[in-house]
Amino acid sequence: MSGYVESEAAVVIDGVDKVFNAGSLDEVTALSGIDLTIGAGEFVSLIGPSGCGKSTLLRLIGDLLTPSTGKVTVFGKPAHGARLDQDYGMVFQHAGLFDWRRVAANIELPLELRGWSRADRAARSAEMLDLVKLPDFGGHYPRQLSGGMQQRVSIARALSFQPKLLLMDEPFGALDEMTREHMQLELLRIWRETGTTVVFVTHSIPESTFLSSRVVVLSPRPGRINSIVDVDLGERTDDTREDPAFFAKATEVREALRADEVGA
């Protein structure tokens, strides 16, 4: 616990377990005894070996799953209420754009559902396209874009209604190293400009270290929080990646992951 007062917290996870298919032969305990508080405006990464329950935890925050025990609070209300209030935006590993909608229309989808006028929607999607550096692609169809461009559109879509919370599940997983590093900087810029809270799932140690103010290290199944690494590297630039302090932090995360392996 990092000592945030309740009102400042974006997400409070309190004693959460998640068991899939309880009581049947394929029962899986995905998460066990999760306590985590994420402050408003924080950038928190969840890292851990495959199958440890990172996506499950993210889905619990987004109320796409319900906990078996414990409770999840988002901006002071139950996760369910936060979802109904559309307090968060979600970005998945695959862009998940609608093929039959032009890029601009994809970005405007959440606005459409909220009943925005056509003019307001067009203005906002143009703004978002600028933000993700795709100003000329509003009229394209998703399949005419590269994977990295599609992912940027999906980020623009998640940000279009300016959610206070952004949930991202390995959004850069499918990208090459160059694009990925570029996108990381873009994301940090957007995060600074919008002041939103980000929960970011990743497999990558350098990525989690580079992006976050805190890295939450999960143990293998059943997922538990074994340690939280505070990362204080100031404002990130490309030079940060070669900074000894950055390496030191990455090593710390790596060792926390190793400790989990041994400990589990």
């Binding site: 796409l64 209030d85 559309q86 968060y88 935006g89 979600m90 998945f92 998940g96 609608f98 959440p110």
Partner: peptide, 25 residues
């Protein structure tokens, strides 16, 4: 696929909206 359905769920879209904006297209 699940990602598309979860996206609509994350927007708290009612069943009818999901039908018209996602399933039918």
């Amino acid at each position: 696929d699940t990602a598309h359905l979860e996206l609509m769920r994350s927007y708290a879209a009612p069943w009818r909206t999901t039908l018209f904006k996602l399933r039918l297209p």
